[in-house]
Amino acid sequence: MKLASEFSVPASPTEVFPLFFDPDAMRRCIPGCEELERLDESTYRGRLVNEVAHVRFSAGFSAAIESVTDSDVKAVKAVLKGEDRKLGSSIKIDAQLRIRPDGDSSLVDYEMDMALWGKLGRLGEPIIRRRSQEVEREFAALLAAACAPQPVTGEPERSTGTAAVPTVAPSPPSRTARTVAVVAAVLAVIAVLAGMRRGR
């Protein structure tokens, strides 16, 4: 199943791009992301947790970066894998994410070729497409908030200082960017799981 979309973030690519290298920033942008750690130069591991209709679920995912391009158009290719054991399902996503300037903002576009195997695979294309849109919206909003010059109000932990976006980016840009796409995709699947469990 192929998914593609783009969304706008009100900050320049040079501001947005570093965010992707910061696991902490990413964790905040990804709804339900409880863990996100970097294992080595090119692999990450994380965990998404959510609770819907009193059902708590937890799904692990990993991301491996295949390539990074850092020029006017910044691009990253990654392979993402996620798994929900309880639902006997796994997911594999070949993702490409690009960021390019659009006036004062950035346009983030992604293409994903998603394989969804197991019980969910027979349920879900329409639902996944729908959920992925929701997740994308949420992610885009959080990313926009993270790019905002002022810390988002009402979130005390952000006002403690270090979270201010521009200060990030100690690591070389060439390595970390892929987490975004990964996350959005895996998240979409997670959201699907949640939706299905809710049994609506």
Partner: peptide, 13 residues
């Protein structure tokens, strides 16, 4: 089938 996954293998679909 989509990438080896049967997507309509239920009597709903």
């Amino acid at each position: 089938l989509d990438q080896g996954q049967l997507v309509n293998g239920t009597l709903l679909d």
